[in-house]
Amino acid sequence: MAGRDESTLHDLTLLGNQNTVYDYSYNPNLLESIDNLHQGRDYFVKFNCPEFTSLCPQTGQPDFATIYISFIPDRKLVESKSLKLYLFSFRNHGDFHEDCVNSIMMDLVNLLEPRYIEVWGKFTPRGGLSIDPYCNYGKPGTKFEQMAEQRLFQHDLYPEKVDNR
């Protein structure tokens, strides 16, 4: 199996950078990609971000969530440090939970053009109500378009036991 060499990493500006700047305002330009060396295979890549924060656009109160991102890559993967900094950039961003989750998905679709992606936000309750938006995307004209429809219709048929809120 071929490994990565400098030529596959030359576009990365954040990984290994000791002078990281944290952007506190929503910034999709932080996202960086690397080549998928396993394009001939379908496989999931999953990220869990248990420390996601954003702000309510009306009250300015903080909202906290675990963001789950799962995708089947095509030609590109998201570089994980850039993803962390991107998710961190929501810290002072005022938007509703549904908007944050959809923005994350669409920013990753625009960057990666994945075969399939889903993003699920598990927000902690405020005022006795938690909101858990889910969205997904399958590449049009492929089997992943049908997969997206099936997973959307069935994603919450068996709700998990919630013991962390």
Rank of each mutant, 00 (worst) to 15 (best):
D11Q: 15
D11N: 15
T13V: 08
L14K: 15
L14A: 10
L14E: 12
L14R: 14
G16Y: 06
G16K: 13
N19F: 04
N19C: 00
V21S: 07
Y22N: 05
D23I: 08
D23M: 11
D23Q: 15
S25D: 13
Y26L: 02
Y26H: 09
P28Y: 06
N29Q: 15
L31D: 12
E32L: 03
E32G: 04
E32R: 09
I34V: 13
D35G: 10
D35T: 08
N36I: 02
N36D: 07
L37V: 05
H38E: 14
G40K: 14
G40F: 09
R41P: 01
R41L: 06
F44L: 05
F44S: 03
K46E: 13
N48I: 00
C49W: 08
C49P: 05
P50A: 07
E51M: 01
E51H: 12
T53G: 10
T53W: 14
S54R: 03
S54A: 12
Q58S: 14
G60I: 02
G60R: 13
P62G: 04
P62I: 01
D63N: 14
D63H: 09
T66C: 06
I69Q: 04
S70Q: 15
F71V: 00
I72K: 11
P73G: 03
D74M: 05
D74Q: 11
R75H: 12
K76S: 01
L77V: 01
L77N: 02
V78M: 04
S80I: 00
S80V: 00
K81R: 15
K81F: 06
L83P: 03
Y86E: 02
L87V: 02
L87A: 12
S89V: 00
R91D: 06
R91L: 07
N92K: 14
N92S: 15
H93A: 13
E98H: 12
D99G: 04
D99L: 12
C100K: 06
V101K: 07
V101D: 06
N102S: 08
I104E: 09
